[in-house]
Design a protein around this nucleic acid. Structure first.
Ligand code: SF4
Ligand code: SF4
Lengths: 133, 133
DNA sequence: TATAAATTAGAGTAAAATAGTCCTAATTAG
DNA sequence: CTAATTAGGACTATTTTACTCTAATTTATA
């Protein structure tokens, strides 16, 4: 699977956050979405680190959007949630075991690059606003 | 990752098979590609079951293409190799834990469907011949 | 200024998927 | 007959995913 639960939870949470007028806490979100609080908290922290969310500590704290929904790409969200860009097939991960020896020089590499580019482009052009229309 | 080593090995092997004039054995292929023989054999068996390859047992046996490269879609190869269609995010896998209750009815479902369709279409239109050009 | 409500950081664990292995049986060309 | 080769199935190892737990830190507000 290209995406994991981290991206699922991130997107579900962001839809609630963008429609709220006050900061939303991790616990509240986890209840509304029926998903594990600790796990969601970790994901929201990641989004905050990447500048997609602003986090407010302490009483009445929580998470709010920094930019407008139309200015946040799905690519940036997924990268923040997963900790890396979603890959069709990550040769670099197999750097030590690439049967070809030198990565990116096998017969199927052009296909992999083309495919990956398609996906990257699609996710970069799509915004948080787009996907809820 | 969307694809696993099964798809990588399948495609690498198919490129050799399509350029050969005699049946290619699993062992020979595994040597040429420097990949594990037993694992490759399993993958080739899968391709044969799906009618992408014809397998010939016994001495001088091996695998040959049944159709022309231009008539074999990458989608069919990947499905045969992976045992399932490559999914962006497979909700059905989480049927018991979908926080939304009824699968496919959450706020991000439309996005997931659109994305999945893009990928399906891309892989269905692309043939084995195309990717080596 | 004490307290309760929050996020933050990091380590640790459980479950699932991936990437194989291994052995035995069946088939077939020579 | 026999050596070469695929077929099938059970099994194991490794890696990734999906969490959990605890302690520290920050901050509104009573
Ligand atoms: S053989 Fe090709 S696909 Fe496989 S790891 Fe090497 S470069 Fe990547
Ligand atoms: S909440 Fe949406 S994305 Fe998650 S499993 Fe259910 S339908 Fe799929």
């Amino acid at each position: 699977m290209l995406l994991t639960r981290a991206s699922e939870y991130a997107l579900l949470a962001l839809d609630i956050i963008r429609n709220a007028d006050k900061p939303k806490g991790a616990e509240q979100l986890s209840i509304e979405l029926s998903i594990p609080k600790s796990f969601l908290a970790k994901i929201l922290q990641g989004l905050a680190k990447e500048g997609i969310l602003e986090s407010k500590k302490g009483a009445h704290g929580g998470f709010v959007l920094v930019k407008k929904s139309s200015e946040i790409s799905i690519a940036s969200i997924v990268i923040a949630a997963e900790g890396k860009t979603p890959a069709v097939f990550d040769c670099s991960q197999y750097s030590t075991t690439c049967p070809n020896g030198s990565i990116g020089s096998c017969t199927i590499s052009p296909f992999l690059v083309t495919f990956q580019t398609k996906i990257d482009t699609f996710l970069q052009k799509l915004t948080l606003e787009d996907i809820f229309k």
